[in-house]
Every structure is written in structure tokens, then in C-alpha cells.
Design a protein around this nucleic acid. Sequence first.
DNA 1: TGTACATCAGTGAACGCGCGTTCACTGATGTAC
DNA 2: TGTACATCAGTGAACGCGCGTTCACTGATGTAC
Lengths: 223, 223
Amino acid sequence: VHILVGWSRSIVDDYHHGDLRSALVLAGMEVGRRGGVAALGVRDLTRAVGVSATAAYPHFASHRALILTISEAAQQEMSRRSILEAMTAAGSVASPTGQADARLRAFCLAYIGFAVAEPGWFELTCQAQKAPAHRDGRSSPPPHHLLLEALDALAAAGGWSLQQQIDAEWSCWSMAHGFALHATTGPLQSSPADRKSHLAHAVVNTLIAGLRSSQSNSHAGVL
Amino acid sequence: VHILVGWSRSIVDDYHHGDLRSALVLAGMEVGRRGGVAALGVRDLTRAVGVSATAAYPHFASHRALILTISEAAQQEMSRRSILEAMTAAGSVASPTGQADARLRAFCLAYIGFAVAEPGWFELTCQAQKAPAHRDGRSSPPPHHLLLEALDALAAAGGWSLQQQIDAEWSCWSMAHGFALHATTGPLQSSPADRKSHLAHAVVNTLIAGLRSSQSNSHAGVL
DNA sequence: TGTACATCAGTGAACGCGCGTTCACTGATGTAC
DNA sequence: TGTACATCAGTGAACGCGCGTTCACTGATGTAC
């Protein structure tokens, strides 16, 4: 049975001895949602949890390590709560080619949509970008795994080579990521929502049109 | 005639009374080239010029103002020294459509190439991204103006509507920007140069293929 | 049941640091008469 | 030619701040006998 002990002077009462590590990550998500990475100081987070500044160090080797852990939590949030949902919702389409198209489109638009809806979390997301490890059996995968999955279907339907599929992977991620940054932090940041949405659709349309035609004339017109 | 006066104790001897403003911006470009935005503290830059920390304030209202000015200098560098050069070099192609293609391709690849070759400057570049102002007669235009110029030709050759051209603008910029970030700061940052180069070409090919086919079936397949 | 002891998650004072910015000032330069 | 004065680009001491990290510590909890 948990009893509120004396040292807990903070408003955050849902933390008690024993799970400070998780509490810090949770606080990081809460604080970083508004405020981004800049708000994730060691002192900021320990303060938010209601604990002395030094209490973080038995759980995290350094400030950077704490940030990276929170970044991974943000990636989970993006994947599980936003992209995965959109992709499974896009599953109800007739033809297999149409379904593959729809799922890839859903990935890109959800990636962008998450960034626009949660710019703070999106910024966290960008902190820990590892080199992509291909299809290990990880549970609740980060965004990149979901992209690979969407492309698998498209590659099978279109008869792509492995090289073509890898290239496509980076086209999709670049387009979605670049647009997300423009809409979030860049020159589109104060555009109205419907303009952002229109451009997002246009941009993703161009991407998919390009992928579709890449199976016929790839490696043509090289500079 | 300039004489080395007593207060100039720094190694940077090419600064004398009267152009401290330019000297600070120049130092910012030098220091930011390695080190990025994080290295552009007020004290860092005044130290680099060999001047007291407070000397910057008659010339810049705040730290932020100083950074924005340096960012604009980096944009000039990117446009003039890298992109403009590549685009004019791509001018020698036969058909008008082929030339428009080549110039757009040159823009994207030069944008990415600059980011990879000068990641510090590229980071500076991203600091001051204003909303794009359409074709005013500015001398030595920032990257966005050069993109518009490249698209003008392509739109004329392809018979695009204005809306299609605006959409294309953001497709190009998103793709180039997203890939540049992946190659610079993101998951591709420690990939070998030839892999970056291969993927850059593949990604730009996909983009251009998408733009080419967008004139026929745009606004089709909307989600 | 009661005492002795190890464990372990936290405290809180302190370290050294560097930041952006303010303020009153100084000393060389150029101009007017 | 020489003196008086305004201008102006700098100085340097100081302010308040908050950071990440270290260290020796404390006090509650669980276990052994």
C-alpha cells in the first residue's frame, strides 16, 4: 500500500518510490509536448516529477541519455497512436495494388499529420534517429518499420527489385520528413491548416506518381 | 591608412574600426561552418573578432538578430556559390523540356550537395526561413527563388496551371530538404558518400517522374 | 518477537561554468571658429 | 595653427541566471538470526 511520504512536495502525486525512471520519461513527454527538446533539462524534468535534481543520475548516465530515451518514447507515440492506426484504417480497399497505394499514402499523411498536430513530440522524434535496422521482430515498431511494411506490398504488386524498394524507402521518408518540417518549423508554419492539408496531399500525390512510374523507367535520365 | 591599434589583441587582424558589423557576420560564417548554430554565441563571435562581448550590441539588437543575419549570409552562400552555378551549368541541353528538367534536377542535387558538403552552413540556412515572397527583383536570390525560376520553365513546357506549379514547388523543396536532413543530421549521416549520392539521384528521379506525370492525372486518387 | 545490519532510492550543498545583457565609462577622431 | 567641443566605436566590470554534474550523506525498507 502506498502512502504519500513527506519528501513528495510536488503536484505530481502519481509518482512514488520505485519507478522514477518511467516517471521521468513520462514527465519528458508531458513537458516536451509543449516546449520541444529545449524544455527537457535535467532540472526541468526532476522538478516536474517533484524530486531533487540529482535523483535522475542513478537512472540515466547523462542528460543526453535521458533525452534519447524520451525521444524513443515519442517515436512509439507517433507509430502506435498515429501512423499504425491510419494504415490499418486504409486496409479496406478492393484491388491489392490499390490497397498498397492507400497504405503508403496513409503512412505519409499520418507522418505529416502527427508532426503538424504535435510539433513538440515531432521534434523529440528527430533526436534519436538511428540507422534503420531491417525487419527485426520488434513489437510496436517505430515509423521506419511501418514504412518498410507498406513498401513491401507495393514492391510485390509492382515487381520491384530490392534496390528499387530501398530507393523508394528514402523517397518516401524524405518527402514526408521534409514537408513535415516545412509545415512545422519552416516557411509553412503559420499557414492555415487547410493550406497545409492541401499541399500535403499534393506532395504525397507527386511522390506516389513518381514511385509508380519508377518501375518502368528507373535509372533513365541520370545526370 | 590603417594602423594596428593597441586594443586589437586578436589573431584576426583584418578587422579595424568601422566595419564591426560585417566582421561579426564574417566570423559567424567561419565559426558556424564547423560548429553550426550552437557555436554562434555573442561571446564566441566577439571573441573571434577580438573585441569585447558588449561591442556587438550597437550593431545587433539581440543575439537572435545576429544569428538571423548570419543565417541570411549562409543562404546567400548556398544560392550563389552552389546552386546558381549548378543550374547555369545545366543550361546546355537540346530540347526546352529537357533543359527545364535538367535545371530542376540541378537545383535539387545542388541543394543536397551543399548540405552534405557544408552541414554547418546548411544548419545556419535553416534558421531564418521566411515565408516565400514571389519573384521580386532581388539580386542574388536565396534558394527558393532559384527553385521558382526552374519551375517556371517546366510549367511552361508542361502547360501547368498556377496551382500545379505551386504544388510542385513544395514537392521539390520538401524532397530536397528532407533528404538533405537525412543525409546530414539524420539516419544517413554516417553512410559513405557514394551511397548518399546514389540515393540522392534516386530520390530526385522519383520526384521528377512524379512531377512529369502530375500534369495528366493530378487531383486523381485523392484520399 | 526483537535486534543488527545491508540495501537502496533518494537528498541537498556545492562546483565550475558560461551565457545574454546593462551600465557608466574612455579615448581616439573629426569639425568649427 | 591651435583650442574647444561633439561624436562615436569601443571597453570592462557587473548583474542575475540556470545549467549539468559531483559528492558525502540520510532515512526508510527488507532480511537474517
